[in-house]
């Protein structure tokens, strides 16, 4: 695999399916898997997250971005349940901006560390100048 891949987790299926569409438009080559909602309802599910990671896993690396609190707990649980646990990182970044930066950086062929560092910068991004 040439590119670091992305796993997007949200309490809402629609948030991550929409976000994936947005990112595909910018960067169609980077593999992106989503895990949104729980049984069609609001929530997250560690088993679905695990499957999402497996579906795009490569030794180039997987960066995980999530929306709110308990998504992180389920992401960590999913990683613990995986057989291969290397080359996976959870980014501390806002979901939309972070994923956007991650897709761009991954598309440039950057390493997992570089992608994670870049998308975590999204926390400092100034969106409106006052």
């Amino acid at each position: 695999m040439k590119y670091v891949s992305l796993v997007l987790i949200s309490h809402s299926e629609e948030i991550v399916s929409g976000l994936k569409k947005l990112l595909n438009q910018v960067q169609p080559d980077v593999p992106i898997a989503i895990a949104g909602g729980n049984d069609g309802e609001i929530g997250t599910n560690a088993f679905r997250i695990k499957e999402a990671i497996e579906s795009v896993y490569s030794e180039k690396g997987v960066v995980i971005l999530f929306d709110l609190g308990s998504a992180l707990m389920n992401a960590e649980l999913a990683i613990e349940m995986l057989e291969k646990t290397g080359h996976i990182a959870i980014a501390d970044a806002p979901l939309v901006e972070g994923a956007y930066i991650a897709a761009v950086e991954a598309g440039l062929g950057k390493s997992l560390d570089e992608v994670v560092r870049a998308c975590e910068q999204a926390k400092q991004m100034v969106k409106v100048e006052h």
């Binding site: 309490h11 909602g37 729980n38 049984d39 309802e41 609001i42 929530g43 997250t44 599910n45 560690a46 088993f47 609190g69 308990s70 707990m73 389920n74 960590e76 649980l77």
Partner: peptide, 15 residues
């Protein structure tokens, strides 16, 4: 519990 509970209590009680 991990499979069926979508909120924080799923991973917490599951663990």
């Amino acid at each position: 519990l991990i499979a069926k509970v979508g909120g924080a209590s799923g991973p917490l009680y599951g663990t």
